[in-house]
Design a protein around this nucleic acid. Structure first.
Lengths: 333, 333
DNA sequence: TTGTAGGCGTTATCAC
DNA sequence: GTGATAACGCCTACAA
């Protein structure tokens, strides 16, 4: 069942069938109808492989993320796929894990599939050391590379980021303004995004004329129970804190559990702010005040930018989205 | 940069280059090395489009799910993609939503991309009315259709399911054995899987010589707060219950919130069991006893079965995985 | 408005 | 072991 079968049955040439398929206006209404009828009758579908070969594109975008089961990344993948599909593109998903070697390997793999562009979702793709990002710059020579919540400069690289630093700064400032003075900062990694957040915490602390103390910046487990235990140990070791700002909701969940288990009242005895405004922030009692970093807006913007790039339009290399603090029961402002 | 360039530089025919690419043994070691060297030097990568055209396959599987941001489905997509990739297949993701028309539309769309098979993740693809599944049977005439946690009989349809009915039965039975007599069942939909679960609840209740009461089977919102409000209303309206079995963890979270807000002790005043053993079950205080329905095993099995099918092997049309009850703080057994 | 023919880059079937 | 050559199914000048 191919274009020749259709052309025979409709008594036209394959060129005419092709024109009908592609909506070329140079076909008489009568012919078009006949061809369409035959295609319908025969249940004909154009062969995408042949089409791809001729056009040298499959209208497919590669979506890479470290782990699509991570709640934030799962949402990102969802919105990206949705937006891409509504723009007429398919999505090839590729979970690369967190290791630099596998990231690189999978990027090459996607490239070898001749996708039209690659979207890197999440802040795990920009490494601190410049040379570790060289492979991205190299790939961007051939196809557009889109970063979702990561930032890198280079040829065809386009970044859409949420201003994490400003968000953390503002959240920390709010806690200080509400009378807190010992703000514990919990984080879980050292990606670009994490470093920016940490920097926001430092700046807000300094701006509040408070000392930036190393023991108040804690690398914390992403398991709520382990996080809780860690906080107990911290407290037992004599470190005092009256508020917690977490780089991810899951860490804030650990903080709520810590307070609940040790009988500390929230928010009076301990104020807590999470990050991502995920479903996790609404599963605890009380619910967690959290920074919404606008996954949907990030993803929609990324795809829209990409579409402009693919159309040959001129677009900015970096777009910044403003996050928003969602107030719930773990803060008293 | 194509096979002709390589053949020229290596002073061989394109046939030989092709043989080298495909690991055909009928090439002398000397020639193979020379060709490989040239390919490396030229940075040659075979064109997948041309290859697909010739072989009539792209080694790509379509993964459909209703909503890849749903935690359970997100995990499923993750494990499926991982396992497929390790088997040498790409994954085209397609989020179909929950509406029958769009599910059908997207399945057709995937088919038109000539994927080698389609995996339907989640229990939302098998409708109660037989005629609503006709399109799946139709599609299964052309390519293998794999159901993850759904069950349907027909040509090339292969189902891998977790025995939800038995799991719910066993969980309910445990609650009754521990002395509970008014078990409220919360569910959130009427998919195949949901109906099976409900049936498990009914059976366990009957087996415990208790009346199966309609007012104790409640269709519940997936928002934890709305669920909590619903439970309050239920209680206010005079309905008594001493335990809750939820068809999804998120509903159980609502139950925990309800107890916490109304001062009911857990598990003494109210025992709660969730379903899915998701991260949500570990975010509340106390943590939620939950049924683990083995997403990873489900997905790995599905892909392994698919690989056998694609190799032409003989495989069972249905595989059942046994779930497991993970005991935590919301039950006292 | 329609048809013809060449090209896209492989794989596979023959010969040699 | 190697090479020529015909598919694979479509798109697109160019011709008519």
């Amino acid at each position: 069942m191919n274009i020749y079968d259709v052309s025979e049955h409709a008594h036209v040439s394959i060129a005419t069938v092709s024109r009908v398929i592609n909506g070329n206006p140079n076909v008489s209404e009568k012919t078009r109808k006949r061809v369409l009828a035959v295609m319908d009758e025969l249940g004909y579908t154009p062969n995408v492989f042949a089409r791809s070969l001729g056009l040298n594109t499959m209208k497919t975008i590669g979506i890479m993320c470290a782990d699509s089961s991570d709640p934030w990344l799962a949402e990102a993948v969802y919105f990206l796929e949705k937006q891409l599909r509504s723009s007429g593109y398919d999505s090839i998903l590729c979970c690369s894990g967190y290791l630099p070697e596998t990231k690189k390997k999978y990027l090459e793999l996607l490239r070898s599939k001749r996708v039209d562009a690659i979207i890197l979702a999440g802040s795990h793709y920009v490494e601190a050391r410049e040379k570790d990002n060289a492979y991205l710059l190299e790939a961007a020579k051939d196809i557009p590379i889109m970063l979702v919540n990561g930032c890198l400069e280079g040829g065809q690289i386009y970044s859409t980021v949420c201003d994490d630093q400003a968000a953390v700064y503002s959240a920390a400032a709010k806690l200080y303004q509400s009378g807190r003075s010992a703000l514990l900062y919990l984080y879980s990694g050292t990606s670009y995004s994490n470093l920016r957040k940490l920097s926001g915490y430092r700046q807000a602390t300094a701006a509040a004329s408070l000392p930036v103390r190393d023991e108040l910046m804690v690398l914390c487990s992403k398991d709520p129970d382990l996080a809780m235990e860690q906080l107990k140990e911290l407290s037992d070791s004599g470190i005092k804190f009256d508020s917690i700002l977490a780089a991810e909701d899951i860490l804030a969940v650990g903080a709520v559990k810590y307070a609940n288990q040790t009988g500390i009242s929230i928010p009076e005895g301990l104020s807590i702010i999470g990050y991502n405004n995920s479903i996790l922030s609404r599963c605890t009692t009380p619910e967690i005040t959290s920074v919404d970093n606008k996954v949907e807006a990030l993803c929609t913007t990324t795809v829209n930018t990409l579409m402009k790039v693919l159309e040959g339009g001129n677009v900015p290399a970096k777009t910044t989205i403003t996050p928003e603090l969602i107030k719930r029961g773990t803060t008293n402002f």
